[in-house]
Amino acid sequence: MFKLENISYTYDATQAPSLADINLTITPGDFVALMGPNGSGKSTLFKILTGLLKPQTGTYYFEEKLVDSTDRCQNHLHQRIGFVFQNSDVQLFNDTVFEELAFGPKQQGLASGAVHQRVTDVLTLLGIEALAQRVPYQLSGGEQKLVALGSVLTMNPAVIILDEPYNGLSMAYQTKLTQLLQSLNAAGKTILVASHNFQQIAELANRVVVFNAQHQLVLDTPLNALTAPQEADLRQL
């Protein structure tokens, strides 16, 4: 699905790279957890995967095709990958939650009946029917996170990327999110999650990828193959 070869990214030419020489392959149906200290480059990697940032060196293949900046390629990337930002409040730009969820499928050219169906399904799925007519900016942080996730789900992407999705969610919603992500993965979606909470990750993912403070990829292993000292390290993050 994703194949990264020697990817490096530098925000500022005067500073050290924020991602250093990353090699990573992700196959369809994977459930990958990304871990690492603050500032290690998790969000940067996600922005590269979604085509928002272009790496200065290295090659990036998505579904066996080389990713470039043509409209066609970007369009393909954006329709196949859904991305929930770390600060998901910036992700909402419509007048009501309903319109927010409908924006994506409308852009994909779905008929209005199908769009309506998808929006109501997702509202029910996330348990946020009551918010449908609210203004997205006036919602609480956790509610905004759910709406951002909903706006991605209605597009039915093959890959779902979530940058620290558990932040700001109540315990009840955290459990709910865990169950939802498991079901989505069972239905064949590839899922990438960045998180600092090993407990949650251990319940969810089948593979963990770890960055260190020097922005290098230092560990990439199935979760059940983690050794005890490695696991102890991850709990510290």
Binding site: H76, P157, K176, S183, L184, A187
Partner: peptide, 22 residues
């Protein structure tokens, strides 16, 4: 393992990509 969530049908299928040049 926690209980699974009932997903709507369309969410379990593969979404075809609408091609810009189409």
């Amino acid at each position: 393992m926690s209980a699974s969530v009932e997903l709507p049908n369309w969410l379990q299928q593969n979404q075809p990509v609408t091609n810009p040049s189409a």
